[in-house]
């Protein structure tokens, strides 16, 4: 049996008082030490919980994925709406941009006007400098349930729209129509005018093509040098209205490695804009000229392309006059 010490005895001492703990820190630390480090069973429980949660998440993902994506019926419904409603000046924008099954299913031309194309555009993001040239109305075709989301295109289209119609729910597809407030409708473009232009070159080939610029398909005039000679190319467009500005872009088609090229735009023989296509700049360089101070008469526009070395993929030049 333990004996209690004699409180009057010479060896008796009071236990030392606990350290002052006004903030509660020492108490918190004492308590934490009772739970940390956890024992092996606690770690095992945590691990089992994590594996189970991940496994259940995996099962849920696999089970629900097909239902989050459009079915063939959804695609047919979207094609039917666009076939019925589309008119010249319309374009389809895909969100997410990889939803390119649309190219296989949607009409490639306006059904009521087969001579007019219905562009199907797949922008990873719709940057402010993307002017949607020639488009009055955008049909945004989106998969709202797709893993990873639909990207920023819808939120960037909305401020440009005068009115928005929809969204129309077509199964797992959504179709929304944006009527653009200020559509950019060019007076002319270099691609359209190429057949009537005068082209001076010794051994270059100049054609209108769709090529990759900054990962996107762009219609442009491509100058390509097949032989060792790198003589300049001159494209002359006679008697054209300029509107308020000339806009365009110069880039190496397909961002192919090799040399670059310098492009000069002249109006009535006077250089008004210049841009360089160089490797490592996949989106190219813009061309811009404020033509508002020029008299509203017709002018001669000349585009000179001077390569600085072999350009295996060709130089892609886009130029248009805006009213």
């Amino acid at each position: 049996m333990n004996e209690h010490p004699d409180p009057r005895g010479p060896t008796y001492r009071l236990p030392s008082p606990p350290p002052p703990d006004p903030t509660g820190w020492y108490e918190l630390r004492r308590r934490a030490r009772t739970v940390w480090p956890p024992g092996d069973r606690a770690w095992a429980s945590l691990f089992a919980l994590a594996v189970s949660a991940a496994g259940l998440f995996g099962l849920w993902f696999q089970a629900t994925l097909p239902g989050r994506l459009p079915s063939p019926t959804d695609w047919k419904a979207a094609a039917a709406v666009i076939t019925r409603e589309a008119r010249p000046g319309d374009a389809v924008v895909l969100a997410p941009p990889w939803a390119e099954r649309a190219r296989e299913i949607l009409p490639e031309r306006i059904p009521a006007r087969p001579e007019v194309a219905l562009p199907i555009l797949a922008f990873p993001s719709l940057d402010p400098e993307e002017d949607l040239r020639g488009v009055r109305r955008v049909w945004l075709l989106s998969f709202p349930g797709a893993p990873g989301g639909t990207g920023p295109v819808a939120s960037r289209l909305a401020p440009r729209a005068a009115s928005v119609e929809g969204p129309m729910q077509l199964g797992q597809l959504e179709l929304t129509r944006y009527d653009l407030e200020t559509p950019v409708l060019p007076l002319w473009s270099l691609v359209d005018r190429l057949p009537s232009a005068s082209v001076q070159t010794r051994d270059a080939r100049v054609t209108a093509e769709t090529r990759e610029v900054g990962f996107l398909p762009r219609s442009c005039v491509v100058a390509r040098w097949s032989g060792p000679g790198l003589d300049p190319v001159v494209i002359r467009l006679a008697s054209l209205p300029l509107g308020i500005s000339l806009v365009g872009r110069v880039a190496l088609a397909g961002n192919a490695p090799g040399g670059g090229a310098s492009v000069r735009v002249k109006v009535d023989g006077v250089e008004v804009a210049r841009a360089d296509a160089t490797p490592g700049r996949p989106a190219g360089q813009p061309l811009r000229f404020d033509a508002s101070r020029l008299p509203p008469a017709s002018h001669e526009v000349t585009v000179e392309i001077v390569p600085s070395g072999p350009v295996p993929g060709g130089v892609c030049i886009d130029l248009a006059a805006l009213p």
Binding site: L65, L69, W98, R101, E104, T210, E212, G254
Partner: peptide, 30 residues
């Protein structure tokens, strides 16, 4: 190699595939 697909569009005068392979709606082959 995207430029090669767009060259195909130019050459064939169409951007419309005639067949394709998709994995969960993501095109792998067109």
């Amino acid at each position: 190699f995207r430029d090669r697909e767009f060259r195909t569009w130019t050459e064939f005068r169409t951007a419309r595939p005639v067949a394709g392979v998709l994995l969960d709606e993501v095109p792998l082959v067109q």
